[in-house]
């Protein structure tokens, strides 16, 4: 039972207290986490490379230059723009028209610092993207399987009825907004907002991004035609893939901010060595 996060490696079972160093994350969890860090960063940046080949998004089955995009990143003369529906936002210098670190100006959607490779190559972007797509998918399937088998999902991630009560949810939101995080043994358990966001990423966002990616494959559309019906066509799938990628970026930003606020050294150590020092109970902030 050394994989139970609530039990220290040795000694009798006693409730850990603030200041104790306890085992937090299993080796498999830690490996999966850091493999995903690499894979997600490369997938995002190579994905932006692929997007640059046709920086327009459509809804439905078809969509090409003569059809109206719902989103477009482009350059006109020496100006760059992002157009969503009828709204056009000037993005000169950032998107559509920008200057790279060597002083060369390009008219492409995403700038070279955001893409892999940093120069325009659709073929190489695809090589990076599909290799790391396999890394993400194989790792993700293995995580799904083991996390159900070792009951990580059922025990640590599944919310209880009490946690889902609106009053409790509201309380947690308020506590988070005030940056009051649980201390002591309570810090070992995921709170309801963590649970919901992890469940959303694991079982909605990641499957969505993989399935919409597959829907862009003409062969997969032959093998699994339900993909097209599920997402409303190849171009819709491409749009949803793009949106899901940015939702994942949003999750990563919030995740990293939370780690920074909760004590970055302790949190990072727990994801590298697996050991976590239980934080003390926070003092109540003075009344506003």
């Amino acid at each position: 039972m050394d994989d139970d996060p609530l039990i220290t490696a040795d000694g009798p079972i006693t409730a850990p207290r603030a200041g104790d160093v306890v085992k937090r994350h299993r080796l498999s969890t830690r490996l999966w986490h850091w493999i995903n860090v690499v894979a997600v960063v490369i997938l995002l940046m190579s994905g932006l490379s692929i997007f640059n080949a046709h920086p327009r998004l459509y809804w439905g089955e078809y969509g090409a230059n003569a059809d109206a995009p719902w989103l477009q990143i482009g350059g006109e003369g020496d100006r760059g723009f992002l157009q969503i529906g009828d709204a056009r936002i000037a993005t000169t210098g950032a998107l559509g028209r920008w200057t790279d670190e060597n002083g060369r100006t390009s008219t492409r959607a995403f700038p070279s610092w955001a893409t892999i490779p940093g120069y325009y190559s659709l073929a190489l972007g695809r090589l990076w993207h599909f290799f790391f797509a396999w890394v993400l998918v194989i790792g993700g399937l293995a995580y799904w399987l083991t996390s159900f088998l070792n009951r990580h999902v059922q025990r640590d991630l599944a919310p209880s009825r009490a946690e889902l009560a609106p009053r409790h949810l509201w309380h947690e939101i308020k506590q988070h907004a005030r940056l009051r995080f649980p201390g002591g043994a309570a810090a070992l358990r995921y709170n309801i907002l963590q649970k919901l966001s992890y469940l959303l990423v694991l079982f909605v966002l990641l499957p969505l991004i993989v399935l919409t990616g597959l829907t862009m494959s003409p062969n997969m559309d032959a093998a699994w035609p339900w993909l097209l019906d599920m997402f409303g066509g190849r171009q819709s799938a491409r749009s949803i893939h793009f949106i899901a990628a940015w939702l994942l970026v949003g999750f990563v930003i919030v995740h990293v901010v939370m780690v920074a606020l909760a004590g970055p050294v302790n949190e990072l150590r727990s994801m590298i060595t697996g050991r976590f020092r239980l934080p003390g109970e926070r003092e109540e902030a003075p009344a506003q």
């Binding site: 997007f51 046709h54 089955e61 969509g63 230059n65 659709l122 695809r126 003409p218 171009q235 491409r238």
Partner: peptide
């Protein structure tokens, strides 16, 4: 389906 991403 073009490799660039568009379809017709």
């Amino acid at each position: 389906d073009c490799v660039e991403g568009w379809s017709a």
